[in-house]
Amino acid sequence: MSKAITLEIPSQVEYLSLVRAVVASAASLDQSLGDQRIEDLRLAVSEATTNAIRAHANLGSNERITIRFGLEGDRIEVEVQDRGSGFDPEKLNPAGPLTEKGRLDYEGGFGIPLMKILADEIKIDSADEGTTVHLVVYVSPPAEKDD
């Protein structure tokens, strides 16, 4: 990644707002990226970082979380890397619509779907030694998204 920024944070929720501020500021360096797309990226990265903090909390780990930001030509790439115990992204059961009976009993299930909607590309690499979420937002959005 050229024009790259790497941020390492303690695995604590108090650092989420810092991550969002850095990502939004860095993304705004490309003046062709609209405010709404910056908001989309800010939320997607915050979700990925939240999941990383949760992964470390589940292990009782004090390891730091790494966020890499890159502005490369027509795309912004962000990687959020944790050292949690990993998970199988294919085995995630999406929560049903909120109007479904009993769905209001469950407060979770928004994070990964939001990332998938907000980012133009998302890839989740997960193994026993940790997870890396790759998010891409196009500076000039493609005419049509596949999904």
Partner: peptide, 19 residues
């Protein structure tokens, strides 16, 4: 100006609790 998935879940819980 910002709500993440945790906040959305809390609002869902609010709907449930109020109802």
């Amino acid at each position: 100006d910002f709500i993440d998935s945790t906040g959305l879940g809390i609002l869902v819980g609010g709907v449930k609790r109020a109802r």
